[in-house]
Amino acid sequence: MTPQRVLITGAAAGLGAALAAAYRTRGADVLATDVAEGVDLRLDVTSDDDWAAARDRVERTWGGLDVLINNAGVAGGGRLDVAGIDEWRWITEVNLFGMVRGTRTFVPMLKRQRAGLIVNVASLAGLVHPAGMAGYNAVKAAVVALTETTGHELAAYGVRASVVCPSYFRTGLMENLRGEDQAFGAVVAHLVATAPLGPDDIATEVLAALDRGEELILPDEAARAAYDLKLRDRAAYDEQMRQQADRLRAL
């Protein structure tokens, strides 16, 4: 089997690094990118020039790409009357437009190849929308929609798209948390720090799901249970979300 050619953003640490290691274990050629040091290529996902340089590197080195993993992202959130509009702009620019730029950069190549896979790492927040996280929820929901649209639009070219929607897992993402709602940020940071799973666990589940051809990937039991409740019993889901919102009043 020909080794896969894989580009991963946000690969210096966390899930991106775990995915890069997992693909390399399989014998894939991996281009790990990030704004941090210790990767193969510096790539700021908000920079059109950086994306063009990444495309040039792929074309020069490999002549094509099999898997694009849009993983880079930032953490943010806050109650509607606390989070500022600049926070909304920041999280949208990185978490949504970063993926849009990556997708637009490589779609022409994938269409010419008539093959390829685009993987967008979203969050359970793209499907289940707890209070206090309007900006993060909205952007991750947009990533889910972007991925579904991508899969439909490119199916005729043999290109697939999958979206990953994990629940809380231990990751360094919270180190870059910013926002005016510091009290709510502390709550989320605690949930991340005490989560039972780490990035290696999630990466293992993601690759297994991609092997099965899944388009919506819920890589942990907490994510699957929460989304199942929303689909199966909307009234119970809404009540659970409102109870969670009520607890925010104590912050």
Score class of each variant (00 low, 15 high):
residue 2 T to A: 15
residue 5 R to G: 04
residue 6 V to N: 09
residue 9 T to N: 04
residue 9 T to R: 02
residue 10 G to E: 00
residue 10 G to K: 01
residue 11 A to C: 03
residue 17 A to V: 07
residue 20 A to P: 04
residue 21 A to W: 05
residue 22 A to D: 14
residue 22 A to Y: 10
residue 25 T to K: 15
residue 31 L to C: 13
residue 34 D to R: 04
residue 34 D to S: 11
residue 35 V to P: 06
residue 40 D to H: 05
residue 41 L to I: 07
residue 42 R to F: 06
residue 44 D to N: 13
residue 45 V to E: 00
residue 46 T to K: 08
residue 48 D to I: 13
residue 48 D to R: 15
residue 57 R to V: 05
residue 62 W to G: 12
residue 62 W to E: 10
residue 64 G to V: 04
residue 64 G to F: 03
residue 68 L to R: 07
residue 82 V to E: 02
residue 82 V to Y: 00
residue 85 I to N: 01
residue 86 D to A: 06
residue 89 R to T: 08
residue 91 I to S: 00
residue 94 V to T: 03
residue 95 N to S: 05
residue 102 G to P: 04
residue 102 G to F: 01
residue 105 T to C: 14
residue 105 T to D: 13
residue 106 F to M: 11
residue 107 V to K: 07
residue 114 R to L: 12
residue 115 A to I: 08
residue 115 A to R: 15
residue 117 L to G: 07
residue 128 V to H: 02
residue 135 G to V: 00
residue 136 Y to P: 01
residue 141 A to M: 05
residue 145 A to M: 07
residue 148 E to D: 14
residue 159 V to H: 05
residue 160 R to N: 11
residue 166 P to D: 02
residue 172 G to T: 11
residue 174 M to A: 14
residue 175 E to G: 14
residue 178 R to D: 06
residue 178 R to Q: 14
residue 180 E to K: 14
residue 181 D to T: 09
residue 182 Q to Y: 04
residue 183 A to P: 06
residue 184 F to K: 05
residue 187 V to I: 15
residue 189 A to I: 10
residue 190 H to Q: 14
residue 190 H to C: 04
residue 193 A to N: 13
residue 194 T to V: 07
residue 195 A to D: 09
residue 196 P to T: 11
residue 200 D to K: 11
residue 202 I to Q: 02
residue 208 A to R: 15
residue 214 E to A: 14
residue 217 I to A: 09
residue 217 I to Y: 08
residue 218 L to V: 12
residue 219 P to D: 09
residue 227 Y to R: 13
residue 229 L to G: 08
residue 237 Y to N: 01
residue 241 M to T: 01
residue 243 Q to K: 15
residue 250 A to G: 11
